[in-house]
Nucleic acid binder design. Structure first.
Lengths: 239, 239
DNA sequence: TCCTCAATTAATAAAATCTTCATAAATAAA
DNA sequence: TTTATTTATGAAGATTTTATTAATTGAGGA
């Protein structure tokens, strides 16, 4: 059978959790790079090199997201987008050439969910993809924050070290990620309190202490006993 | 010139004391109200209505704080926040819609310094803004004050010399940073007293002396025995 | 309904830092 | 040199802040 698209990353056992992304792009180089990038981030990638039957194949594959290059020869990406929108709501991220602001405005008015200009930063692309998928599916692979040898996945609520996994509770996660995101300074207890409990009525001061204590002991379990440093009278800081 | 942001309150003579706040929000009504509110409280307000070039303009304006609406169309505020965090530590307060608990949690995981839900009480917003600014006040633009070969990081509460690190306690930090910020003159003991204990009369004169003594011995540890110079009957000065 | 687990409170313990005290040193004045 | 005044230091003791552990509550799942 003569497939018009290529599917990378066909580890079937993972399919259920993976998001399908269809890339419509005529430049082979970019195509391959994109495929690698996305594959590496656990997306299931389909490449489409031209617009022949594009619509049909989109409907067949039913990707979770389409990355659409607007400068495909012979046909205008916007037209495809317009046609697509008549059939489905699959989110589309338009990839436009540099400084074509008009395109940006237009693609959105035609129903693109986001746009990105070439040349783009791969990380930004990934973030945008993640954001769009999250909007649509309510879930997406949130990037993992790393701290030393630890990988912290907020969405899943786990910290990984090699193949050790640590499950954090909601409060522990909030504390850890706040500290993680402010490694450069002392974080006051007050700050953590508002982060955890907003302006909620009165919550015992000690609740925070207890939560930190538990978080510490969990971190200790995987060999990080002294990462949360107490600055008495000032707050905490991640070492 | 076609500015993408608007600057309110441009009384130049006040700029130095004023904090710049960049508001990223698409709703014009809210925008204007916010601008009025903040302006009225002597903030220098910049409005950004969409995300085109947001990052670039943020870096250009270099605000002291960013108020970021998470529900801007086309792109996700979280993505901007993530990207922003790669470049700078400008504090961000996320403004989230009412029933988006996920967003609240996420904004923290992405490194927001605080969040507030719509509709918000203006006074609470102001308080939060004040709190965040106070945290970073003074030290934001130059997180590390240098003194000879010493780097004093107020936010981390440490003094570094090469790879030696000295941890200071709260009082020691207050004293050292005060001296550091007034290197050019003699600082009276009285001044230091009020800085440390405000006006509480009940504190023994000697408490200050003892605190200075300890600070000195710590500085001595890293090879700076004589930096705090006593001017008998007058005060202290940093050599 | 009961059970489980996380979150909070409560009670107590442990630290770290701060202040005081007693006394010594340093400087200025007489 | 002597004396007075100011500052230094070292070691308690006190205070405040944070930790720990256990008990209670409360929500969600079996």
């Amino acid at each position: 059978m003569d497939l018009n698209y290529i599917c990378y990353n066909n580890k079937k056992e993972m399919w259920e959790n993976m998001s399908k992304i269809m890339v419509i792009e005529d430049d082979k180089l970019i195509c391959n790079e994109l495929a690698k990038l996305l594959e590496h981030h656990n997306y299931e990638v389909y490449l489409l090199k031209d617009f022949k039957e594009a619509l049909k194949e989109i409907l067949e594959v039913s990707p979770d997201l389409i990355l659409l290059d607007i400068n495909i020869p012979y046909i205008n990406g916007e037209v495809l987008l317009q046609n697509l929108r008549k059939e489905t709501n699959i989110p589309v991220i338009m990839v436009t050439s540099i400084n074509s602001e008009i395109d940006e405005a237009l693609s959105i008015s035609y129903g693109a969910d986001d746009y990105i200009t070439k040349p783009y930063n791969p990380n930004i692309l990934l973030l945008r993809i993640g954001a769009v998928l999250k909007r649509v599916k309510g879930s997406f692979n949130s990037p993992e924050l790393t701290y030393r040898e630890l990988k912290f996945n907020y969405q899943k609520g786990i910290i990984k070290k090699d193949n050790l996994e640590l499950e954090l509770t909601k409060n522990e996660m909030i504390i850890f990620s706040y500290l993680l995101n402010h490694q450069n300074r002392i974080v006051t207890r007050e700050e953590l309190m508002t982060t955890l409990w907003d302006n909620s009525e009165y919550v015992n001061e000690n609740a925070l202490t207890v939560n930190i204590s538990r978080l510490r002991s969990k971190l200790k379990e995987i060999g990080y006993p002294d990462v949360i440093n107490t600055k008495k009278g000032m707050g905490y800081i991640l070492l």
